[in-house]
Write a protein that binds this DNA or RNA. Structure first.
Length: 402
DNA sequence: GTCAATTCACATGAAAGAGACCACGGTCTAGTG
DNA sequence: CTAGACCGTGGTCTCTTTCATGTGAATTGACGA
């Protein structure tokens, strides 16, 4: 594209009509004023937390439900309203919200406490201090002001999976020791079964109250989409049935509202790119494919080199095969690939772990099976759509220079 | 033909090492008055 | 005299390796009918 070509492109882009009226309404971080279909849960949470306004300690609570059922949204909404009132009435109260999602920095006991302490205005180095020390300065910060603390731990299951329940145990226990300040813990989890693998002491104190967020059904998702779409899109750009189809797609896999919204937004973007004045039903199909593709390519591109090598080994083996691959085979290819790219070779033990991580990410399918006399291994096959295959392969080849 | 033992090719766990980070405190050095 | 540079220490975290143990069914081989 020549320089002037670029300019005209940008100018054309500016003038181009968009189906969106206010796009941010439909983006994932937007918090709507009213939350639909969650009146019951909002009330429960409010009931649990309300004592904080009277300087009493609210019960700890455990909230669970599948992804995209509005847990985080509802909790944030309710706590915010609570905070508003607390400020107006000048009740000392502090709400700390923490997302424990992996790769976000809060995935060890040390980091959890350090992060909490940081929320209280302490500066804690990212590493280097004994964990004990961090606890101490955290409690010191707690006791400095006498007030109620509500700690919301989002995706708490991730934290426990990685670090065990040590941190939680310490946190729940302090509530009884500390007379100065009171801590309430709200745990949010996608995984219902996770509570079972907690230490019984932690479990009983954490789940003093339990709230379940059931999945939305298709009708509820529809009304939610309508509410947002009304603000996000221009009038009349949505073809008949678009919202219904988005809702149906999302309801198909466990009523994930977030997914429904994303689908609708991407469908809008697809329509824009095609210079379509309307969002058609066919755009939704494209949007769904695009979301899938983006997710996978994103994950692949950000993997470390060794991981990419392992994955590339699978990629280079797969096409000429109808039967699944097994671990030893992949490892052999991986080894030769390492020599070719001048990379250090990891042990089979490690590669085995890498494979199971890919399995968890949903990039490959790995089922352990036993071939009787001929050993036990994983049956490995790629779990990505045809259309994405080449694209990912190119990314890998480029990154690895093979 | 039946049944227990064997065997394969890894899976899965636990523990420990290497190396990168980082804060903290002490020591050294150069610049300033 | 003091600020800043520079170590050494002691801690965490992540990625790996090493060593050990577990697994599930095809195969094998002994045994009895």
């Amino acid at each position: 594209m020549t320089e002037t070509g670029l300019e005209t492109f940008f100018e054309a882009f500016l003038k181009k009509d968009s189906v969106f009226f206010d796009k941010k309404v439909i983006q994932s971080n937007y918090t709507p004023e009213t939350i639909l279909h969650r009146e019951e849960q909002t009330k429960q949470i409010a009931n649990i937390l309300a004592p904080a306004l009277k300087h009493e300690k609210p019960s700890n609570a455990f909230i669970y439900g599948k992804t995209g059922t509005g847990k985080t949204l509802t909790v944030r909404h309710t706590t915010k309203k609570l905070m508003d009132v607390a400020e107006k009435e000048e009740v000392p109260l502090k709400i700390i919200y923490l997302n424990c999602k992996l790769k976000r920095g809060v995935d060890t006991e040390y980091r959890l406490i350090a992060q909490l302490a940081r929320e209280l205005g302490k500066s804690i180095p990212p590493t280097g201090l004994p964990t004990e020390e961090v606890y101490r300065s955290f409690f010191k910060a707690l006791n400095k002001q006498k007030q109620n603390y509500i700690i919301v731990l989002d995706e708490i299951d991730q934290l426990i999976n990685k670090t065990g329940d040590n941190a939680l145990y310490n946190l729940t226990r302090t509530t009884t020791e500390d007379t100065e300040s009171q801590i309430t813990i709200i745990g949010i989890s996608n995984d219902v079964t996770f509570i079972d693998c907690l230490d019984p002491r932690v479990r009983s104190s954490l789940s003093e109250e339990e709230i379940v967020f059931p999945p939305y059904n298709a009708l509820q998702i529809q009304s939610m989409l309508r509410q947002r779409a009304e603000m996000a899109f221009k009038k009349g750009v949505l073809e008949q049935g678009v919202i219904e189809k988005c809702a149906a797609y999302a309801a198909r896999d466990h009523g994930d509202a977030r997914r429904a919204l994303e689908l609708l937004r991407v469908a809008g973007e697809v329509a824009d790119r095609k210079n379509s004045k309307k969002v058609m039903i066919s755009h939704i199909d494209e949007a769904e494919e695009k979301i899938d593709r983006d997710r996978i390519t994103d994950v692949v591109a950000t993997q470390p080199k060794q991981y990419q090598l392992v994955l590339y080994s699978i990629f280079s083996l797969q096409p000429n095969r109808n039967t699944p691959l097994f671990t030893g085979e992949v490892y052999e290819v991986y080894k030769s690939l390492c020599h070719k790219t001048d990379t250090s070779v990891l042990t089979q033990r490690r590669v085995s772990d890498i494979l199971s991580e890919f399995d968890m990410l949903g990039i490959i399918n790995a089922k352990t099976i036993s071939n009787g006399r001929y050993g036990r291994t994983r049956n490995i096959s790629l779990d990505i759509p045809e259309t994405t295959f080449l694209k990912i392969k190119n990314i890998l080849e480029e990154n690895l220079k093979v």
